[in-house]
Simulated scan of single mutants.
Amino acid sequence: MTTFDARERAFERRFVQEEDARFRARTRRNLLLAAWACERMRLGAEAADRFVETFTDAGVVTGDGPLLSRLQADLRAAGVEETLPALRRELDRCAALARAERRAGPPPDPTA
């Protein structure tokens, strides 16, 4: 293996790791946003679980704009009025929280 090949493989590994980290952070952000929305809509536990699952699944394949539009429509259907700028701020807050959680590492295991 040449030095060039080794560097190429290292760059490829780093790219994969960075993409994985971005995916995990985006998924966590969407989960936090969905949980916030569930509180605003006053959903019960079962309905909230369903909402969070479908919202986070949809968030994987859509951009932020369509995701926020869908969230606004869901909130409106539940009788909660939120503007897109307010939802964007909440999305940014959830993203910052997800990044902070990632830097802090996994929470300690309470059973240990």
Rank of each mutant, 00 (worst) to 15 (best):
E39A: 01
P85M: 09
E39Y: 01
G59I: 02
A47Q: 12
D5P: 02
P66G: 09
V80N: 04
T62V: 13
D64G: 11
A96P: 08
W36T: 02
D74F: 03
L71P: 02
G65K: 12
R93E: 12
S69E: 13
G59Y: 03
V60C: 07
A21W: 00
R9M: 13
R7Q: 08
D49T: 11
R50Q: 06
T62W: 13
P106G: 10
A48I: 11
T3H: 15
A6D: 09
D20E: 15
E81Q: 11
R29L: 03
F15C: 08
G59D: 07
M1S: 15
F15G: 13
R29T: 14
T27G: 09
A104C: 10
N30R: 09
P107C: 02
V16E: 14
R29I: 00
V61T: 12
Q17R: 14
N30G: 11
V61C: 04
A25Q: 12
G59P: 06
E18N: 05
G79A: 03
G44K: 05
R13A: 10
V80M: 01
R88F: 09
M41T: 04
R50S: 07
R88D: 04
P66M: 03
C94E: 08
L71V: 05
G63Y: 02
F23H: 12
D64V: 14
R40Y: 00
D49G: 09
R99Q: 09
P106A: 08
E82I: 00
L68F: 06
A34K: 00
P110D: 07
R29W: 02
A21C: 08
D109P: 00
T3N: 12
T2H: 13
L84F: 00
G65S: 13
A100Y: 04
A47N: 07
Q17G: 06
F55K: 07
D49F: 02
R24A: 12
L97T: 15
G44S: 05
D74E: 14
G63Q: 05
R9T: 07
V52I: 15
